[in-house]
Lab assay of single mutants.
Amino acid sequence: GKMTGIVKWFNADKGFAFITPDDGSKDVFVHFSAIQNDGYKSLDEGQKVSFTIESGAKGPAAGNVTSL
């Protein structure tokens, strides 16, 4: 299901971020390909987002990341 959280930090050079979920679970890795914005895919620290949890090769990662 959809979860919500806050972007903890975003590394534009490497194209990934971490989200701190609102439910208090541990921070979730985000690859820029999961960001659903049109055009430039970036996130801002402190931004509120919704996302799903996908199981990636290196463990859980956020999918369908959308700005709220």
Rank of each mutant, 00 (worst) to 15 (best):
Gly59Phe: 10
Asp13Cys: 15
Asp22Lys: 02
Ser67Tyr: 02
Asp23Lys: 02
Ser67Cys: 15
Lys8Asn: 05
Lys14Asn: 04
Ser67Trp: 03
Thr52Asp: 07
Ile53Thr: 07
Gly15Asp: 03
Leu43Phe: 11
Leu43Met: 07
Ala34Asn: 11
Leu68Val: 15
Lys58Cys: 15
Ser33Asp: 07
Asn37Tyr: 13
Asp38Gln: 11
Val49Arg: 01
Lys26Ile: 08
Thr4Lys: 04
Ser67Asp: 15
His31Ser: 13
Met3Pro: 02
Ala34Leu: 12
Asn64Arg: 04
Lys58Arg: 07
Phe10Val: 15
Trp9Pro: 00
Ile53Gly: 03
Phe51Asp: 00
Leu43Thr: 02
Lys8Met: 06
Gly1Cys: 15
Pro21Gln: 02
Lys41Trp: 13
Ala61Glu: 15
Asp23Thr: 03
Gly59Cys: 15
Phe32Gly: 02
Val49Ile: 07
Ser25Met: 03
Gln36Phe: 10
Gly63Phe: 03
Lys14Ile: 07
Gly46Leu: 03
Val7Gln: 00
Pro21His: 01
Met3Phe: 07
Lys2Glu: 07
Ser67Asn: 15
Val7Ala: 00
Phe10His: 03
Glu54Gln: 05
Ala62Ile: 09
Phe29Asn: 02
Asp44Met: 14
Gly15Arg: 08
Lys58Phe: 14
Glu54Lys: 05
Tyr40Pro: 07
His31Arg: 13
Pro21Ile: 06
Gly5Asn: 00
Gly56Lys: 06
Val30Ala: 03
Asp13Arg: 09
Gly46Thr: 02
Ala17Ser: 01
Thr20Gln: 10
Val30Ser: 00
Gly24Ser: 03
Phe29Cys: 15
Phe10Cys: 13
Val7Cys: 03
Phe18Asp: 01
Ser55Thr: 10
Gly59Met: 07
Ser55Asp: 14
Met3Ser: 04
Phe10Ala: 14
Met3Ala: 05
Lys26Ser: 10
Lys8Phe: 03
Phe51Pro: 00
Asp44Gln: 14
Thr4Val: 05
Tyr40Ser: 09
Ile53Ala: 05
Asp13Thr: 12
Leu43Ser: 01
Gly46Gln: 02
His31Gln: 13
Ala17Trp: 04
Glu54Phe: 05
Ile19Pro: 00
Asn11Cys: 15
Ser50Cys: 14
Asn37Arg: 06
Gln47Ala: 09
Ser50Val: 12
Asp13Gln: 12
Ser25Asn: 04
Val30Arg: 01
Ser42Cys: 15
Gly1Asn: 10
Asp23Val: 04
Ala34Ile: 07
Leu68Tyr: 01
Ser33Gln: 06
Phe32Tyr: 11
Ile35Glu: 03
Pro60Met: 05
Gly63Val: 14
Ser33Gly: 07
Met3Lys: 08
Pro60Trp: 01
Ala61Pro: 09
Pro21Leu: 06
Asp44Tyr: 15
Phe18Leu: 10
Gln36Leu: 13
Gly56His: 12
Phe16Cys: 15
Lys8Trp: 03
Asp22His: 04
Asp38Pro: 11
Ala61Trp: 08
Asp38Lys: 06
Asn64Cys: 15
Asp44Val: 13
Gly39Met: 09
Val28Lys: 04
Pro21Cys: 04
Lys2Trp: 14
Val28Asn: 00
Glu54Arg: 05
Trp9Gly: 02
Asn64His: 08
Val7Phe: 04
His31Met: 14
Phe10Ile: 15
Asp44Glu: 13
Phe16Asp: 01
Thr20Glu: 05
Phe29Val: 12
Ser50Phe: 10
Asp44Trp: 15
Trp9His: 04
Asn37Glu: 08
Asp27Val: 06
Thr20Lys: 11
Gln36Thr: 09
Thr20Leu: 05
Gln36Ser: 09
Gly63Tyr: 02
Leu68Thr: 15
Val28Thr: 04
Asp38Leu: 12
Asn64Glu: 11
Asp13Pro: 04
Pro21Met: 05
Phe16Glu: 04
Ser55Ala: 12
Asn37Cys: 15
Lys14Ala: 05
Val28Ala: 02
Met3Cys: 08
Gly56Trp: 09
Tyr40Trp: 14
Gly59Gln: 12
Asp22Gln: 04
Thr52Ile: 12
Glu45Asp: 05
Lys14Glu: 06
Ala12Asp: 04
Gly46Pro: 01
Phe29Ala: 04
Thr20Ser: 12
Leu43Arg: 01
His31Lys: 12
Leu68Gly: 15
Asp38Cys: 15
Asp23Leu: 02
Asp38Ala: 13
Gly24Tyr: 02
Asp22Met: 08
Asn64Asp: 13
Gln36Trp: 10
Ser33Val: 05
Val30Met: 08
Thr52Gly: 04
Glu45Ile: 13
Lys14Met: 07
Ser55Pro: 12
Gly46Phe: 04
Gly39Pro: 09
Thr52Phe: 10
Ala17Gln: 00
Lys26Leu: 07
Ser25Arg: 04
Phe29Gly: 02
Phe29Lys: 07
Lys41Ala: 09
Glu45His: 12
Gly56Arg: 05
Tyr40Glu: 11
Lys41Val: 11
Lys8Glu: 01
Ala17Leu: 08
Gly15Cys: 15
Thr52Pro: 03
Gly39Ile: 08
Leu43Cys: 07
Phe32Cys: 10
Ser67Arg: 03
Lys26Tyr: 06
Ser50Thr: 13
Phe32Met: 07
Lys58Met: 14
Ile19Gly: 00
Gly1Val: 12
Asp13Ser: 11
Gly39Leu: 11
Glu54Leu: 06
Thr4Pro: 01
Ile35Lys: 02
Ala57Ile: 13
Ala17Pro: 00
Gly59Ser: 07
Ile19Gln: 00
Ile53Trp: 12
Lys2Ala: 10
Phe51Glu: 00
Asn64Leu: 12
Val49Ala: 01
Lys48Phe: 08
Asp22Phe: 05
Gly5Asp: 00
Gly24Leu: 02
Ala62Cys: 15
Ala62Pro: 11
Asn37Ile: 13
His31Val: 09
Asn11Ala: 07
Lys58Thr: 14
Ser55Gly: 13
Asp38Arg: 05
Asp44His: 14
Thr20Asn: 02
Ile35Trp: 15
Asp44Ser: 13
Phe32Ser: 04
Asp13Ile: 12
Lys48Arg: 14
Met3Trp: 05
Ile6Glu: 02
Ser55Met: 13
Gly5Ser: 02
Asn64Gln: 08
Ile19Ser: 00
Gly59Leu: 11
Gly5Tyr: 01
Ala62Asn: 10
Phe16Arg: 01
Ala34His: 12
Phe18Cys: 14
Lys8Pro: 00
Lys26Gly: 11
Ala61Gly: 12
Asn11Val: 04
Lys26Gln: 11
Ala61Phe: 14
Gly56Phe: 10
Ala61Arg: 08
Val28Arg: 05
Val65Gly: 14
Gly5Glu: 00
Asp23Trp: 03
Phe51Gly: 00
Lys26Glu: 09
Lys48Ile: 08
Phe51Lys: 00
Ile35Tyr: 04
Val49His: 01
Lys41Cys: 15
Gly63Ala: 14
Gly15His: 07
Asp44Lys: 14
Ser50Asp: 04
Ala17Arg: 00
Ser42Lys: 10
Phe18Pro: 00
Ser42Asn: 12
Val49Tyr: 02
Trp9Gln: 02
Ala61Leu: 10
Gly1Trp: 10
Ala12Gly: 05
Gly59His: 08
Val65Gln: 07
Asn11Lys: 04
Val49Leu: 02
Met3Gly: 04
Gly24Trp: 03
Ala12Cys: 15
Asn37Met: 14
Ile35Asn: 02
Ala62His: 09
Gly59Ile: 09
Lys48Ser: 08
Val65Phe: 02
Glu45Met: 12
Glu54Cys: 15
Ala12Trp: 09
Phe16Asn: 01
Ile35Pro: 02
Phe16Leu: 14
Lys48Thr: 07
Leu68Ile: 15
